[in-house]
Amino acid sequence: MSVVFLLCACISVCAVALICFFLFVNGIPAIKEIGLLNFISGTEWRPANNVYGIFPMIVGSAYVTAGALLLGVPVGILTAAFMAYFCPARLYKPLKTAINLMAGIPSVVYGFFGLVVMVPFIRHNFGGRGMSVLAASLLLGIMILPTIISVSETSILAVPKNYYEGGLALGASHERSVFFTVLPAAKSGIFAGVVLGVGRAVGETMAVMMVAGNQPVIPQKLTNGVRTLTTNIVMEMGYATDLHRRALIATAIVLFIFILIINISFSIIKMRSDK
């Protein structure tokens, strides 16, 4: 019987192997055909002319992720600090429920909300078409909040209480003790949360597609449209054939490698913070 359990356990190994195999077998030939350098650093994506450069999408992913972090990280960490050290007892449970719910809302619902609320708002107040780097960043900033909050809160709570008490004993106020003794001690855990948030933001697809405009050009302004690696795949996979199709799979390989790097750094940071 133990063999059956072992087989079950091996399925996840097989799944990862299969995913890698099928992505690489279908995508690597396209990268070879286009040329790795042309593919990664090419600034033009014109499937009709067989020109496949994903640099604008890499930059696009980087922009919206950076924007999301700019908004999500401060709010997320401060909210985590609030929940761990400032929150009145009767507020704690509703807030925790709210944050869990935030993590559970489907990305299409977020995307739709962005489409009907944020996009018109940006169009009226900042000009442009509304579907923009700004809209995608704002929306992603909201979507990564629950990840950052829950990982940060856990690591803040894991800091031994005597750090906080030591701060108080030296005459620091409650706020100063939390921010200048507890938070620095929890920094690697908080950082792990941020890295996990980056993974979420880079991998998010549908919500971004609905608000980003999806032009395959490097955006010059915050109000310009942007296309990310993920949306590049969803936008065109439905009708792509031949090299175009394989180029999209190759895009997924690039995305997959980015995500692997992010996840490995998360594991390393987390391992260090657990020690």
């Binding site: 299969l18 995913i19 099928f22 992505l23 993974g199 880079v202 991998g203 998010e204 697809t205 993920t230 795949i233 969803v234 996979m237 999209l248 799979i249 997924a252 995305l255 997959f256 995500i259 692997l260 992010i262 996840n263 998360f266």
Partner: peptide, 10 residues
């Protein structure tokens, strides 16, 4: 950690 679009493609 794999994004859902990669699952979709796979």
């Amino acid at each position: 950690g794999i994004p859902s679009i990669v699952y979709g493609l796979f």
